[in-house]
Computed example of a mutant assay.
Amino acid sequence: MPQSKPDFIAFFCTFAPPCAGGQTPAIDMRAVLADLPSDLLRRFLPGLRCSMNLPPVPGVYFIPSQFDPGRFGFRRIGRSWRFFGAQPGEAAAAAMTPEAIRDIGDDVVLDWRNGWMQRFAAMPAVAPHPVTGERLWTGYNPKFHWAGAFAQSLFDAAFHNRTTRQVVVTTILALITGVFSVLRLLTCVPGIGLLLPPFLRSPGLSSTALADGSAVSAWDVFRIVRCYNANMLTWSWRPGQFVVLDNHRFGHFRTPFDPGYKREVYTMFGSRRES
């Protein structure tokens, strides 16, 4: 998110897995901008609205991005919107305490869907580098979309971690994402959506839309992920290795690896000194 984006990000490796995967590729955002399809770029240029959603109660939910390949289950969401003192309805923002409003940001727009609170914040798709001024893709995270985890897992299995385990994970994610997409459609059908259990009617842990309110499609996300994987710098971690990235010029992500092997990489953020 732009309000919390550091200027630099550093990594330091103390233990590297001997198996495949576990890398931290750097994504060239200048090359991504040049590589994105023109029709997608035209629609994204006005900006996006992204939300990290909160459920009505903490718990485990059937959400693709919450799938944990380490234990082949779903990660628990430990916080609900009640933590912020919110109440569903038009007066939600007014019902929140000043401390809660400062916590989520005063530029956040609240919305509600099937009991979930969606906290939408504006995000530019393209922005100038704060020093050089060159236009860069800002690094839209595909996991803001319900299909993003599956899209990246396809490329992980094809290029980054060609193991049987990763093929199994990708297959499971394909099934989970397929079921989740069908459930999303059913919630829009009058008389059927309300029959579904509440945990199946969630919008997911995150939501995204274009600036004009139109949807970001699964095809959009797949094409963005393809550009990320086509324009990256990769290296294999070794103990003692230290890497610093310009966090505007480069994005990054982590490739999957067998959790049975130890991997320890520390992360630190930094900002440019004010002149």
Rank of each mutant, 00 (worst) to 15 (best):
P25K: 00
V169D: 00
N229F: 15
L45V: 10
F253M: 09
F8T: 10
R254H: 09
M232G: 10
T187D: 11
I104T: 02
V244S: 05
V216L: 09
F84M: 10
R102G: 06
I192R: 00
R75M: 14
A94K: 12
P198Y: 03
T234P: 02
C13W: 04
P64W: 07
R165A: 10
G73T: 13
M1F: 07
D28V: 02
Q118A: 14
P37A: 11
L186P: 09
P259V: 08
I9R: 06
C227N: 14
R263Y: 13
P2G: 11
F269H: 14
D246Q: 01
C188N: 05
P128H: 03
S51T: 07
A158S: 01
V168T: 13
S38Q: 12
Q166K: 01
P98I: 00
N114I: 04
D35Y: 07
T170A: 05
I63N: 05
A125Y: 08
N53E: 07
Y261L: 07
G191S: 04
L54K: 00
R42S: 13
Q66A: 12
F72Q: 07
S51P: 04
W137R: 01
F67L: 09
A151H: 02
A127Y: 08
F12S: 11
A95K: 07
C19K: 00
F155C: 10
F67W: 14
G178Y: 06
C13L: 06
A10H: 04
V108W: 02
G204H: 10
L41Y: 06
R43K: 13
G105I: 01
P98V: 00
T208K: 03
I172C: 12
R43L: 13
S65H: 12
R135V: 01
Q166S: 04
V126Y: 02
Y140E: 03
M232D: 04
P197M: 05
Y261Q: 13
G115R: 02
L245D: 01
T97H: 12
W112F: 01
A34H: 09
F15V: 15
A100L: 03
A10W: 04
L45R: 14
F44D: 09
L173R: 09
D106S: 08
L33F: 07
G270I: 03
F180Q: 13
P55G: 03
N141G: 02
H252G: 03
V265L: 03
F74C: 14
G59W: 00
Q66M: 10
F257E: 05
E134I: 03
P2D: 14
F74A: 13
S271D: 14
L45N: 05
